[in-house]
Design a protein around this nucleic acid. Structure first.
Lengths: 362, 362
DNA sequence: CTGAAAGCGCTTACAG
DNA sequence: CTGAAAGCGCTTACAG
């Protein structure tokens, strides 16, 4: 073990660049060059300075650095467009918090939104990343193929990027922040099964946006859900209900037909944040005997939870995801400090009793 | 609405003290005096500068401020001593995280530990706060009377303090961070009742440290627990088991006797973080039919959860509590930014299925 | 009561 | 390849 002198340990004053310069018999500019690997430095000076650097525990004063350099950097955040009360509004809350902190270190944030149900809109957003240049990118990789292409471009230009919400492990992302979808499905299954008979039928509410299938995340959650049922000896039937965000009358007909055909249904689940749709139906029809589990603590779901129309919600700290995604990039750019590549965000379980405290997650 | 020019909105460059000085026709030192309400300033200059300040949206550059002032401040954190794997070790994790950030703004942290089961040790820690002077204090107010005395002293010396873990509302604390204990009790009751018959007996494990009664927090949790049972028509019997941290043989005898006398017990609960004691007993005696709910995601509890000896844990983000307590003080000291006085930390529910992801809560 | 000047630690042209 | 010097925005003695 090398003997090191550290100010905090020894009571010595903290080491500055001038100190190093003096010890190495060079100017501060040369020390700066070595520290940042920029410009040319003679072999001799390089060796001397490195020798000093090895002796002392130099910790750059980031505040001074940021003040002196005056350098501003710009990040681009590419996430779905949202309205108030939507899931992505909560992610934005976290991003805004990070933005406030990042500004102090000279980092600005540019937003770029896309329609999460419309692949071409994602591709248009990706074009911005091509046309302009950024120091880093946070992106919700909703659409696989365009994302892979985009990632190749970013890799080529050596622009670091962070994934939020869902992951594409084959990409060279700096970090990923999101909940483990498969286990999120298992959790939902457990919450439902704790309260219904193992032979009762369960409705799966599927929100249909367009002909294509659901998101990767929803699919993984469903797999986890089914896995749990298999493991625990479930022997009822899983029924599917196709619902639309924009067609209440159609939803009503769909559900009326389903419940008429299967009076024994005792549970329901949705794998995205729209369980308030099903909850509204159950509530309106007085079906308090049907247990419903869904995802995300958005206000409309929270209201249904409070009313008792939803049994439990599985939530995923969207603000934390937004905040940490941005901060990971800041840490990297400002201090060169890497973040873990995969950062599973905790899966939160909300009942009526603890929902009221599930707010400021920052 | 007053018209304000803000750099971010208008593309104008950001306002500095020199700009204000120029606009008011004074020196930067005088502007500084007005901004910080320090030193004497003539009526006339005061008026001029305030007029300018009203026009522009001056946002001090905190980085420059901290660099220039070179002022260091010291906070004192007074929390229970702990060993690895204890609850308070997790709180310390959050404190250490905050410390790293705070250092950049010239804030140092001093620790002061006490024995959470020993009031005199708390009083000794309080003496440090009297003898030395700090710019702010974070404190876990375990013991009411000495804390009230200490708070009076801090108030008199105008030293801001933040409570963590539990609250004493009659004190003039800058902020409080902790979970709502009563509802934490209700949540535990719900978790237990979802899985047992309303007429089954329930054991309450009480950890006895010394003759005195348990902490305020435990008592409140128990009240919430009982309230939930009352509301939901529970009609079994609540049985009490007195356990000790340091007497496994005694615990064994106590529980053997209890379970022998009450073979119908189907549930158990503890209101502090030691449910691993009860879990160990149940596991060793093959009592998988007894559902157990406890508090805090410390490692020993987590292991029992994974094994299935604990049904669910209610957790309270100790790292977040530690982190935010310190940061609240930093925000106040550095920027004069106040925090909400009461900050309820979310109540987390952990099952075997989501426990693995309940780690880095920061 | 007020302002000129130095300085916090680091970076950045610029001249050599 | 190197170093002296200016400057980032703010604060702090100090002289007046």
């Amino acid at each position: 073990m090398e003997e090191r002198l550290h100010p905090d340990d020894s009571g010595e004053r903290t080491i500055r660049i001038v100190d190093i310069a003096r010890m190495a018999g060079v100017s501060t500019a040369t020390v700066d060059r070595v520290i940042h690997h920029r410009g040319k430095v003679s072999e001799q000076n390089l060796a001397r300075i490195n020798a000093v650097l090895r002796q002392v525990d130099y910790r750059p004063n980031l505040i001074a650095r940021s003040l002196a350099s005056g350098r501003r950097r710009t990040l681009c955040v590419v996430t779905p467009a949202f309205e108030e009360g939507d899931y992505w509004a909560d992610v934005e809350t976290g991003i805004a918090r990070a933005e406030a902190q990042a500004r102090r270190y000279g980092i600005d944030i540019r937003r770029c939104r896309f329609d999460q149900y419309d692949c071409p809109s994602f591709e248009r957003a990706a074009e911005v990343l091509h046309d302009e240049t950024f120091d880093g990118v946070v992106i919700a990789p909703f659409f696989r193929e365009p994302m892979l292409a985009l990632a190749r471009g970013l890799d080529a230009r050596e622009i670091p990027y962070v994934f939020v919400d869902s992951d594409l492990p084959e990409c060279n992302r700096l970090a990923y922040f999101g909940t483990p979808s498969f286990d999120a499905g298992r959790v939902a299954a457990r919450l439902l099964c704790d309260r219904i008979d193992p032979s009762a039928d369960i409705v799966i509410g599927r929100i249909v946006h367009r002909p294509g299938e659901g998101s990767v995340q929803c699919r993984l959650r469903e797999e986890g859900f089914r896995a749990y049922l298999d493991e625990t000896g479930y022997r009822g039937t899983l029924l599917s209900a196709s619902l639309r965000l924009d067609d209440p009358a159609g939803n009503e007909r769909e559900l009326d037909a389903l419940f008429a055909a299967h009076p024994s249904v005792a549970g329901a689940v949705t794998f995205n944040s729209t369980c308030h749709l099903l909850a509204g139906y159950l509530s309106a029809h007085g079906r308090r005997d049907v247990r419903l589990v869904g995802y995300d603590a958005i206000r409309r779901n929270g209201r249904m939870l409070a009313e008792g129309a939803v049994t439990a919600l599985v939530a995923q700290r969207p603000e934390v995801q937004g905040y940490r995604s941005v901060m990971a990039l800041c840490d990297w750019l400002v201090e060169g400090r890497p973040t873990a590549r995969i950062n599973p965000i905790p899966l939160d379980i909300l009942f009526k009793e603890n929902y009221p405290y599930y707010n400021n997650n920052l």
